[in-house]
Design a protein around this nucleic acid. Structure first.
Lengths: 161, 161
DNA sequence: CATAACCTTTGAGTTAAGTTTAAGGTCAAG
DNA sequence: CTTGACCTTAAACTTAACTCAAAGGTTATG
């Protein structure tokens, strides 16, 4: 199959497929006598696997290290470990999110519990000072950012739509 | 407070703080007669909110759109609405995370459930075909990636450590 | 045989979220 | 009055994961 066909079947752009090849992620590629790339049907699997892993939060570099040249003989020990690490990452973030959410929720409760005899501005100050106190205790100052597994984890964002 | 002090208190680099100002995220800044930036104590809170939101998966652009309406109205009474929006955002993110995690967990289970009597290569094929089946349904072909909150979500990766 | 639709390579551009560098002004201490 | 720590700006650099453009070769179709 040519690159256009593969692109169609995977939903990826041809340039992206070439890029993956250049990056050492897609090795199951041959050349026809005309110089055209020719792919076995298996390439669809490989590309699917790559995008799946990406969706799960793996960088291409991580994927490159996990993907065996021979799909049939991948080392699933390393793979399993990596998958579990990723799950742990997600769990850490979940805990963190839950914490943030609980904070917000209790903030809301705090605001709603505003004594009737103080004005809005004073209440705002009361609430804000509470937030600052919380934040500096739990999140700031280098101590525990997320990074449960590896180096820095700071990529997973909606594109600010 | 000067920028160095603010940096120390938030754990961020000065360059990053200046960058956030340039990006329109940090507006609570004044200039001394020497040209130095001068921050009110509140700036610590703003930066804390920014990094917290980042950790929760928001892009700076999203944060920029949320912040001014948030913090400047925090003095007035749109506060509750803003907080509730934030909680809703967090819940959306939690859903996103849960989805990703579920995918990983089921993949792990699938790999581990390898019957004792088949070899590694066969297991690989079995798992792979499952992944492909899943993916073409749920992720591939432009259709519906995760995006609970915004547009495209494809950033959340460890740095391939 | 023309022409559109493929394919090739190389190299440059893009975006996000910063960091680094260069060249300089300011301030507190000794 | 010099030294070092701090601050300023503008501009360039960084990384990941691509995309785009240019300039050209190939192939299928009318």
């Amino acid at each position: 199959m040519n690159i256009g066909e593969l692109a169609k079947r995977t939903g990826l752009s041809s340039s992206r497929i070439r890029f993956y090849e250049r990056a050492g992620l897609l090795t199951t590629v041959d050349r026809g006598p005309n110089g055209y790339r020719t792919y076995p049907p298996q390439a669809v699997l490989v590309l699917t696997l790559i995008t799946t892993a990406q969706n799960a939060g793996f960088s291409l570099e991580e994927i490159r290290r996990l993907l065996p040249s021979d799909l049939e003989r991948w080392q699933h020990d390393g793979l399993l470990e990596a998958l579990r690490r990723k799950v742990a990452d997600i769990e850490a973030l979940e805990a963190r999110l839950a914490e943030n959410k609980a904070q917000l929720v209790s903030l809301i409760a705090d605001i709603e519990a505003k004594p009737d005899d103080i004005d809005c501005a004073t209440n705002a100050r009361r609430v804000l000072s509470r937030v600052v106190g919380q934040e500096t205790e739990s999140h700031l100052e280098g101590a525990g950012d997320i990074k449960p597994t590896g180096k820095a984890s700071r990529r997973w964002q909606t594109k600010a739509g």
